[in-house]
Amino acid sequence: MTPTLFGRIQTRLFLVVTVGVVWTLLIGPLLVTLVDGADLGDVYRLAFGALVLVAVVGIGWELLYHALQQFRWEKDWPTLFGLVTGLPEAIVVYLLLRQDLPWSLGSVPVDAFTVHFASTWIVIWLTANGPMRVVFLRWRFRGGRLL
């Protein structure tokens, strides 16, 4: 899929809300084991906080990616970029969580955050690189737009 600006944003929001939420619910019990004294509620507060930031701050990231894409002749966004941009995004989300955004967490456990963020990012990336085309036949021709 070669994204357009609106396609990028729509795809990100859609995948975070669907795949991201389902994956986060599934992985929650595992994350609990990584944080001393935390219960499932604490872990979900952390994980869903991260998801909200990936969605909201991500719109800004997409504007940046779209601007960078303009300097590529093919006007494409290689699959690899979709994977490695997870790193700067993770750092920003981590820093924002520590600033009590989108809500206060006390401390941010690095292990649980890393496992949740990395695994969610990869699951979303894999979904965007295959199954999305099966469910939404026109998606790849519309630059990632769903609406």
Binding site: T2, P3, T4, G7, Q69, E74, K75, D76
Partner: peptide, 9 residues
């Protein structure tokens, strides 16, 4: 260019 098939082009 790739974007001619489904992207911004």
């Amino acid at each position: 260019p790739k974007a001619a098939w489904g992207g911004q082009l």
